[in-house]
């Protein structure tokens, strides 16, 4: 694919979890890249491996999980091969992360100001006073009123939107090149959600920061993303720029996702749910992982897994698309 200016390149990433003698391939051969200043959305249902992918980037996979294969290239550095000490220099400085539920993600016993300041002081040799001033600047930057006062507040005394702004300020404090936003707006109500999305957009524009935006909300994707990666059962099933994907979703799973999202112009229609359930992580189906729920399933799908094939920069993992493409050629 046209990797113009890749900041992060994930190649065939495999992150497995172990439960007794069973192996759960949460991320099973995922490849994609993120360019400088680009917002890439990673979309999929719960349990499809979105969050595990993001935690793999930061090396935050807890036991019993383990990165079993592939590379995560940040510039020329393979993040999977870093020593513990080198990882610490990447986290919070080069790559930072914003979690879904800021109340759970902020430590309840420290002031929010201190938690931002701490991130600054881990990576910069500056005095406490200067770090505090910087933390207050960051609070101003993310649009928090009365930053001096909020600095001394504990997370529980702030509103959900404010807390997420604090998380963003914290994520920005090391001037990262990449911010991973793991469903940052899911826990917020819609108006606050719009404000937070706007803020993230402004940040990428001002600082040319890249964002890996993890979500299951296609509305949010349309709002913010430059490029979209759709994941299903630990694999990338479709990848395209946001316009191609919304105009012409190719993978049956992507299509099904669109059908199950509410649309403003079809307000009376009943939403369709995707038939069946996400396959059990212990027993993923043979062949195409989606064949158990796919309305277009063919014989081949049940035994042979399709590859991710490119067509005009639009990547799809589906036999149907492969065959359509072939018939177009002949």
């Amino acid at each position: 694919m046209n990797a113009v200016d890749p900041l992060l390149q994930i190649e065939d990433l495999k992150t497995y979890f172990y439960s007794g003698d069973k192996v759960i391939p949460s991320v099973d051969g995922v490849s994609f890249h993120i360019n400088k200043g680009e917002i890439v959305a990673l979309v999929g249902e719960s349990g499809c491996g979105k969050s595990v992918t993001s935690l793999s980037i930061l090396g935050l996979i807890d036991s019993p999980g383990k990165i079993e294969g592939g590379r995560i290239l940040y510039h020329d550095l393979d993040l999977t091969r870093l020593s513990q000490k080198e990882k610490l220099q990447i986290r919070g400085k080069e790559i930072s992360i914003i979690f879904q539920e800021p109340l759970a993600a902020l430590n309840p016993v420290f002031t929010v100001g201190y938690q931002i300041q701490e991130n600054i002081m881990v990576h910069e040799r500056i005095s406490k006073k200067k770090a505090k001033a910087k933390a207050i600047d960051l609070l101003i930057k993310v649009g928090i009123p009365h930053p001096e006062k909020v600095y001394q507040n504990y997370p529980h005394s702030l509103s959900g939107g404010m807390r997420q702004r604090v998380m963003i300020a914290m994520a920005l404090s090391g001037n990262p090149k990449l911010i991973i936003a793991d469903e940052p707006t899911t826990a917020l109500d819609v108006t606050i959600q719009a404000q937070i999305l706007q803020l993230l957009k402004e940040i990428t524009e001002q600082q040319r920061t890249s964002i890996l935006f993890i979500t299951h909300d296609l509305g949010v994707v349309a709002e913010i993303a430059d490029r979209v990666i759709v994941m299903y059962a630990g694999q990338v099933v479709e990848q395209a720029d946001v316009y191609s994907l919304f105009d012409n979703p190719k993978h049956p799973y992507t299509k099904a996702l669109f059908n199950s999202s509410p649309k403003m112009d079809q307000i009376d229609e009943e939403l369709t749910a995707i038939e069946g359930a996400v396959p059990s992580p212990f027993e993923k189906p043979m062949g195409c992982k989606f064949h158990t729920r796919c309305p277009y399933v063919m014989g081949k799908c049940k035994s042979i897994s399709p590859d991710l094939e490119e067509n005009n920069g639009h990547l799809v993992r589906c036999w149907l698309s492969t065959e359509n493409a072939k018939s177009e050629v002949t």
Binding site: K87, A104, L106, V122, M170
Partner: peptide, 16 residues
């Protein structure tokens, strides 16, 4: 140790 704020602390690059 399984709380999210511990993961946040790690994600800042804090020493274990």
């Amino acid at each position: 140790l399984h709380q999210e704020y511990i993961r946040t602390a790690r994600s800042k690059g804090l020493k274990e």
